[in-house]
Amino acid sequence: MPEKKLPRPAGTGRKRPAAARLRLGVQLGWSALTNGYLAGFVQGKIYTGPAKSLCVPGLNCYSCPGALGACPLGALQATVGSAGYQMAFYAVGFLMAVGAVLGRFVCGFLCPFGLVQDLLYRIPLPGKKKKGKLLPGDRVLRKARYVLLVVFCLLLPMAAVDVVGQGSPWFCQYVCPSGTLLGSVPLLTANAALRSAIGPLWVWKMALMAVLLALGTLYYRPFCRYLCPLGAVYGLFNPVSLYKIRVDEAACIRCGRCRAICGFDIPVWQRPNSPECIRCGRCVEACPTGALRMGFSVHRRPTRYDLAP
């Protein structure tokens, strides 16, 4: 008896599937909504209204001229480094609440710097498909984001303080490429006074950003996978977050298409809620039997496999 031919899964053809278009729409819409202070881009200034005390979920520099909210990592460092506070209940509570509900869905849908990397990875470059998906030394490198979280976002801002007890936001200062791209570039473009203050630190941050953006054309979201402390936090919540991927064991045929299409090479049928997963949903689209389900609901949808003749 001939084997039943599976229908071609979505996400493997030339046309981008509806879910991917929807995700891009959400990314663009959210980034525009939370960076909607257009006057800032023209005048080289930032928004200073009361909304700036509210955190947004993604890595969105509050010195982006359009930013209407605060970056949660910046908020964390500002509070733990502030004399008289040391503990950041507001920022940590925000990260915990968002992580418990969404996990790294934030990375896949609500992060402007994630959107930038997604767009960069679309650039067709020769030889791109022949190389591996992950950087050499991936197993070690991907622990760097936890080191950056603990050392640069917590310990150094708390411990390395000036004479009045004020710490610096070490991650923002020495690493964050989102601040460089979304804050520094547009602000300095429109503000001559700021341009006159350019020094070695700015050169370092621009060089780091350039390297990460260049890598982003070859590898899928290298900053998210290796360096982002915000992704590290949300990733810890992935196994329990209310928004998750579920595998229907009965329907899964372990064909490996989910892993093949995953930018991070995750064997989704084995580790659907891996801390690396950013919930982009490409695996769900690619699954030929509909065994993968992503969302808040536990119900299994009718599958293409069920409907195949």
Binding site: K45, I46, Y47, T48, G49, P50, K52, S53, L54, C55, C61, Y62, S63, A67, G69, A70, C71, G74, A75, A78, T79, S82, Y85, A88, F89, Y90, A91, V92, G93, S168, P169, C172, Q173, C176, G179, T180, G183, S184, L187, L188, L194, A197, I198, G199, L201, W202, W204, K205, M206
Partner: peptide, 25 residues
Amino acid sequence: LGLWRGEATVVWRKAAQICLECIGL
């Protein structure tokens, strides 16, 4: 608890000024 401690004001004070560290200056 953070709001009660006034942490949102700390966040606002930082976020409502150009963060020179963030932009590398």
